[in-house]
Amino acid sequence: MLTKRIIPCLDVKQGRVVKGVGFKELKDAGDPVELALKYCEQGADELVFLDVTASYEGRGTLVSLVERVADVLYIPFTVGGGIRSIDDIRRILQAGADKISINTAAVQNPSLVKEASEVFGSQCIVTSIDVKRVYVDEQQSTDKTVAETENGYCWWDVYIYGGRQSTNMDALKWAERAVKLGAGELLVSSLDFDGTKQGYDLALLKELSRRVSVPIIASSGAGDLDHILNALTIGGADAALAASIFHYGQYTVREVKQYLAKHGVPVRL
């Protein structure tokens, strides 16, 4: 039986792992290679490395870091941040990454998702989507996909440049389009929930799960074990990504998976 995945996320800035609140106020959280090995030993199913400032500053991703990680790691890992072209993708994959995640460049140039999935295969193209809720009145007329949440009705706006810029794009529609273009997975992060430890945006995950036929990786908001359980059950996500609960030692990956197993979620222990 296919198991649900737990994916520690390492946000990398200038070769160090950092963690922020709502995508800002970055704090140092350790050496990427050391952390990668530690999580692998704890039973992580995959890892994600995001070069958090790459897109903003227009830098390429850190190829040498990818090589160092690939040389010690025997589980899959994804690299994102500042990837804008087929050549960027080729360089990262050849350095030893299994998948790449495209965010800003996919929004600005959707044909990149199509071309990349044709060249490298859908299974290594992750489309990463950063969203923020826009609350509306139930009766208000809008061309956006509105859904009910615990705080009222909203639609989800796509943000680019590491959460710095709104696009006024409907995230649910964008997700469906990205899948049609060839994205093999969606990695969904919420600016409302990131770093808050209040739980994942379950309303968003539920809406997405109903609409797309590719695996969904839930991101942003994990604060305790039930948050992860809920994302994978109520939210219908296939994988849960988390950062600070692992970086600061609140839980090990194995503790999370043992808890999930106890609640009937299939995991690799």
């Binding site: 296919l2 995945r5 093999g184």
Partner: peptide, 13 residues
């Protein structure tokens, strides 16, 4: 088959 999510992605037995 289309009754499962594609790609088949992750750890399976």
């Amino acid at each position: 088959p289309s009754n499962v999510k594609i790609p088949h992605m992750g750890w399976n037995t």
